[in-house]
Design a protein around this nucleic acid. Structure first.
Length: 415
RNA sequence: GUGGGUGUAGCUCAGUUGGUAGAGCUCCUGGUUGUGGCCCAGGUGGCCGCGCGUUCAAGUCGCGUCACUCACCCCA
């Protein structure tokens, strides 16, 4: 029979790595809850048009990266490629805004995009996500960034940088777009790279982001979004930066920072690392005023971010294997059941430990205890049972003592 | 979607001009009748990714295919 293997771009997550994921989620939960964020869990499948409408029909994500399929009655469903759309849908559908428009929501879980896998990019990947809905106060933008940065600091990660930009709003962005377009048209387009020739029409902002030196050189005098912001957006962005400066958040302005999803407006940001390969963004987000309305909700603003857990995990040190308080070596079959019950009592008292299910040689079981980094090895056989005693061996010193079961708890506690 | 690299033991990798498959680590057993790590001895473990071709003979050469991986693109 041929072996069945996992599908491309999906992965089985085993212990050291799954521990990292757990650590990241737990840290996020702890930090975000201090800001009043509540956890929300939404389905990983939604109706396709939710994503088409929010992310944008023309984006690469919607055009060629979604896992879209008909259900048994022919309705088009999609594995979520990002979290914001689902969270907003839930916010609107459950009328959370009716009781309290301002909602701080945290969610995490798997996302799906059909892309060619590479370092830091899987088809099933995991994100930690925060949305702050119902306010356009610049202080909310600042708080979201502080929340994200505090979370990242709490994970102990180093070498991360914050890039910040404002993309303008529905008023000023089109003006900038026109200015950019006419600038690009004025260039000797033959000298642009093939991608930029295409991007010039499909996604002009991306041209500013091109890594090809020739393109960089040609666009160095391109119009800058910051010079085209309308007074309101300019004021909003300045207010955001004022709080960030007061909080001494270490960010750099990047007027060429672009977002891949259409819904972003005004404040946008990205956290980048130089240590994880070419997929260097570990988190990204921004404001999306107008999106809630676009999804059939009230006219309320929002801002949020997503963190790539795989990318963060690449930067995390390996977690240490958890140590055992005891490993119980069973010397005779007749001691097996007693051993298991004894271990169960110890676990009830809060000790961590394992029992050797198979009565292999003492040598083999001690080797096992050593491998599992147990603090102690308990040895139980017929001899010990007759005396109502159990042998406790300290694995670090090799010292060994015979204690009654009543004293065992204390003996372990002293280790 | 495009390009590069790599597929040999559980892991990391050798393998000569084509000639019957190797090491280190891991694991198991023993050296020590019921005592771990270090050391020593032995052992388990392979459709050499898969298929086709060339050849007396293919891990090795050719073609195809699949998988993994890095990069472009895109993005968290």
């Amino acid at each position: 029979m041929s072996k069945i293997q996992k599908i491309k771009g999906f992965s089985d997550l085993f212990s050291p790595e799954s521990d990292q994921f757990q650590f990241l989620e737990q840290t996020a939960r702890d930090v975000f809850s201090r800001y009043g964020c509540r956890e929300l869990r939404t389905p990983i499948i939604e109706k396709t048009n939710l994503f088409a409408r929010s992310i944008g029909e023309e984006t690469d994500v919607v055009q060629k990266e979604m896992y879209t399929f008909p259900d048994r009655k022919g309705r088009s469903l999609t594995l979520r490629p990002e979290a914001t759309a689902g969270v907003l849908r839930a916010y609107i559908e459950n009328k959370l805004y009716a009781r309290e428009p301002l909602q701080k929501l945290f969610t995490c879980g798997p996302m799906f995009r059909y892309e060619r896998p590479q370092k830091g990019r899987m088809r099933q990947f995991h994100q930690i996500n925060v949305e702050v809905l119902g306010t356009d106060a610049p202080q909310a933008d600042a708080e979201v960034l502080l929340m994200l940065w505090t979370f990242l600091q709490s994970t102990g990660l180093k070498g991360l940088a914050i890039e910040l930009n404002s993309l303008g709003c529905a008023e000023c962005r089109p003006v900038f777009h026109d200015a950019l377009r006419s600038f690009l048209d004025s260039l000797d387009t033959d000298r642009l790279c093939d991608d930029c020739k295409r991007r010039k029409d499909t996604n002009p902002l991306r041209v500013l982001d091109c890594k090809v030196p020739a393109c960089k050189e040609m666009t160095k005098d391109a119009p800058c979004i910051s010079d085209h912001l309308c007074p309101e957006c300019r004021e909003h962005f300045a207010a955001v930066r004022e709080v960030l400066d007061q909080a001494e958040l270490p960010y750099t302005l990047n007027p060429r920072l672009v977002r891949g999803l259409d819904y972003y407006q005004r404040t946008t940001f990205e956290i980048v690392s130089g240590d994880i390969g070419s997929q260097s963004a570990v988190a990204g987000g921004g404001r999306y005023d107008g999106l809630i309305e676009k999804l059939g909700g009230p006219k309320l603003p929002g801002i949020g971010f997503a963190c790539g857990m795989e990318r963060l995990a690449l930067l995390l040190p390996e977690q240490e294997e958890p140590h055992l308080d005891f490993y119980l070596a069973v010397l005779d079959d007749s001691a097996l059941n007693t051993s298991l019950i004894l271990a169960q009592h110890l676990r009830d008292k809060g000790f961590t430990g394992e029992v050797g299910f198979e009565t292999k040689s003492v040598k083999a079981q001690l080797r096992q205890a050593n491998r599992k980094q147990a603090k102690t090895c308990l040895l139980l056989g017929t001899e010990e049972m007759d005396k109502g005693q159990i042998l406790v061996k300290d694995m670090a010193t090799g010292a060994q003592q015979s204690v009654s079961q009543d004293d065992l708890e204390q003996a372990l506690g002293l280790q």
